[in-house]
Amino acid sequence: MYITDSGQYCLTMLETKLLSLLHVLIAVGDFLRHCFYSLPIRFPYQWKNLQQKADARDLKKVPTHLGVIVCEEDISLPDIANLIVWSIALGVSYFSIYDLNGYIKRKRKELKEALDNAQKKCLDEEQRKYTIVIHNDAESRPHENGCYSSNKIDIQLLSKADGRQNLVETTRLLSQQVASKQRRLEDITPSTVEEIIKEKFHFPDPELILRFGKGECLFGFQPWQIRLTEILSARSHHNLGYSSLTDLFHQYGETKQRFGR
């Protein structure tokens, strides 16, 4: 069959248009699904402590360490603060808050204020028995100061510099140690590397990562630490309700780890 150039061109145009149409349809479908899931009436800022307890009992498991990846241009610290405070109520004690370019890292003070506000809103003063510590690179990490209460919540703010680049630094350190005969080449094993990384970050590996925004991707989040991490996504962290969060935790509760067996 003979197809002219213009015929070929029309065909290509048609294909491109069809693909765009398909993507529009998927986007609409996605949006409708999102609307459907957020249908039940929610009162994000006005729930009782009692309700939290019940929710926490319902959950099959709760991560000790929760990673949050925000891949949205516009980052709302109050919403992140709510997410943290609710998660603490559900039983999370470590947080890694990540955005690619380190915006949140630079807004440490503002996040702290937002957290204080969120805590005031959510819990009675007498029930606020935990202290929140936001760690910076240069600062002391958990365990370092020796005394740590069981009610201490540790938060680290991360950017991509803490990802692959951290492994590069670890390699440099190990190379120096091998060159100066402090360590043997065969001793560079996953457990030694794990030790070195733990020395720097002092956090356990996150069991769950919640990813918000466009781009189903980890965007350079610490590669070494996410070996067994469950990754769940949500559309946006803006106006994230308490029940949307518990939905995600319930979803996490359904996952099973087999550790290769």
């Binding site: 990802g163 189903e216 996410i226 070996r227 067994l228 990754i231 769940l232 996952t255 780890q257």
Partner: peptide, 20 residues
């Protein structure tokens, strides 16, 4: 339906699109 990487290409998939 599992939603983790299970120690697979951790470094290489830092910027890969994930499809579970």
């Amino acid at each position: 339906g599992e939603v983790r990487l299970s120690d697979f290409l951790l470094w290489q998939t830092s910027y890969s699109c994930l499809s579970f």
